[in-house]
Nucleic acid binder design. Sequence first.
DNA 1: GTCTATAGACCGATAGAC
DNA 2: GTCTATCGGTCTATAGAC
Lengths: 209, 209
Amino acid sequence: MSVPVPAPTMAKPSFKQQMLRAREDAIILAVNRLLAEKGFDAMTVDEVAAEVGIAKASLYKHFPSKEDLAAAAMVHVMGRAQTFVQALPADAAPLDQLKAVARWMMETQLAGQMPSLPSQNSSLRATLMNQSAYMDGLMTVSDQLGAWIEAAQAQGVLNPKLPAIAVLYTLYARACDPVLEFLKANGQYTDTQIVELVLATCFDGLGAR
Amino acid sequence: MSVPVPAPTMAKPSFKQQMLRAREDAIILAVNRLLAEKGFDAMTVDEVAAEVGIAKASLYKHFPSKEDLAAAAMVHVMGRAQTFVQALPADAAPLDQLKAVARWMMETQLAGQMPSLPSQNSSLRATLMNQSAYMDGLMTVSDQLGAWIEAAQAQGVLNPKLPAIAVLYTLYARACDPVLEFLKANGQYTDTQIVELVLATCFDGLGAR
DNA sequence: GTCTATAGACCGATAGAC
DNA sequence: GTCTATCGGTCTATAGAC
């Protein structure tokens, strides 16, 4: 005689698993914030634990090293970036799509939610490059941006003389543009004004039109 | 009976003083290089001593702390910047002066001679702000750049809608623009091409003209 | 009663200071 | 060349859920 048995592979997440997942999210959020605020080197693992409100040892149950903590935060923002890019209206002009992405990066940075890592740190680089979720997201986003860049250049609204790769890097660099923080510290502009100001200098340049 | 005595205040530097001065220059050069290569946090004092070829204790005879080492390097580049700005032909167009300064900053960065400090580090900030040589140089350069910015805007060759402070910050940001290192790592452009590329995007923008 | 997660002490290495 | 502080990472005793 057979009795119904829940299929193990389809079991809905247990309460415990949900808790673990929720805590992992909290950890990533805290790391994201601290990474944006003080950078990788200045961020200590003890700080992260304190911010989340758990013991340091518990952190290491989730992430095997500080590098993996940072990598998880990068995966998280990359996911958000991918979501943002995919949610853009497909029928908008390519140039507007690029501006929207640049705007999103700057807003994220001003909101203190853009983790920024030292690009020289090699162990960190290695950890990140092993995160396929990050690399996949980066490739997907870059491909989409690349397509928009070429389309905008074909339309003649983006300078066709600029190599697409240079345009791409210039857009990515908005995620860590120090001008934003300088203008914010200066105090006489709102976040919105700062974003529009830097967006204008990025696409229209400093020179008169 | 009186004998000739060298006046202490006018005495030419003794040999020992010259040696000290020379070594101090060597230290600053090494710090400058290491600071440009790996940043403040990753640079260790032992490395500096090893690079100069002196004992760590000797370093502390010259500079009381790691922060002061970094500050000395910043004073040094600020002096070089001041020299460069003052050596520009006084009769050139203001816009060209600004471009020349931006170009110099980018060339200096690409040459690995632009020390770059974490702007969040408060003890470092405090040490730097106490260095009047640095603050004076920064003020002098900023005043000169500000004058050129306003002149260029009055001539209508620089976008008059942009606040001068935003233009100034945008120029300063070229000293640590990550696009340079990205393009360099990319490998398909010479340093000169990279500088001209980024200079063009900075002044002309990404959009078509 | 068993099992797991936690808190917090602890260790080793490294780097700044003198 | 030594001292000390800090930080990444580990270990163990305990509390609490089931």
